[in-house]
Write a protein that binds this DNA or RNA. Structure first.
Lengths: 152, 152
DNA sequence: TATTGTTATACTCTATAACTATA
DNA sequence: TATAGTTATAGAGTATAACAATA
């Protein structure tokens, strides 16, 4: 595309990401599924996390930050509400808006899934040298800059 | 879990991966979807790639390497066969076995999806410094060691 | 009996289009 | 009219359980 800019490692880098990202996701997904029996999908997990950090957020905000369309998020939230992990209420100040919070159950579920998955991941990472972990953290930050919004 | 082994950067590292991996996947998925109009999902893309590298492979082999269950892969292949991207034949030497190959259409489709997606990714990565790309490649290799089989 | 696949069933993910309710 | 959500629809992803065919 841009002649002269393309260096060999560019394509190689893209290729590596294309190859490895799915593997990592599969690992995370499987682990999440094992934790306490098919509790949460990855998007549900991330959504609970976001709501937990932003109690009272709206559907649009969650959708925006997680990266789903509104209808997709609406459905996803349906599932969380049905299992009583999240609470969906109409905002009295603007009755079009839905206010989202975690239930106590949801909070516990998130906690447990997060601890389990993160601990499992940490255990795998503990085999690595400190330098390798630093490399990974550095790479994740770079990738976040490219692919991500802040999502805090 | 293992007192004394856990260093601060361990949990941080796990957390980073947990945060960033989904973002990267979303980027890849969206791009793949844009390419030539909703052609291929990520697993389909990966499956075509594997078959391309292993013409005549069996269903079990693909499932194993891509990381899906047999029924899931069977269904996925149904889709590829229906769109004439892949050809599924009974192996005459062992009639239980299904032999998988790419059709010409599939080969072209794979080529185009791969080029498009990889090029797009490469374009995003071209904004980075050489060192950053090196960091990413290094991290991907480390992660592949943890999460992946070879899948060549 | 063991292996290779497929079918049946059941969720979730995710998008687009069309709609409702509120502002 | 513009905004926030929901419903309808549709296809893919994915698992488990039960089954059929072949070795």
């Amino acid at each position: 595309m841009e002649p002269g800019i393309v260096k060999p490692s560019l394509e190689a880098c893209a290729r590596e990401i294309l190859d490895v990202a799915p593997l990592v996701m599969r690992g995370i997904r499987n682990e999440l599924r094992k934790r306490g029996a098919k509790i949460l999908s990855v998007p549900q997990f991330r959504t609970l996390g976001f709501i937990s950090r932003h109690q009272g957020t709206s559907l649009s905000e969650v959708a925006e930050h997680i990266g789903l369309t509104l209808p997709a998020m609406s459905t996803l939230i349906d599932g969380l509400v049905a299992r009583n992990y999240a609470v969906r209420k109409i905002d009295p100040d603007d009755r079009r808006r839905m206010t989202l919070t975690l239930s106590d159950t949801g909070q516990r579920m998130l906690q447990s899934a997060r601890e389990g998955t993160q601990a499992h991941l940490a255990r795998q990472l503990s085999k690595l040298q400190e330098t390798d972990r630093r490399t990974i953290v550095a790479a994740m930050r770079i990738l976040r800059g490219i692919f991500g919004e802040v999502e805090t």
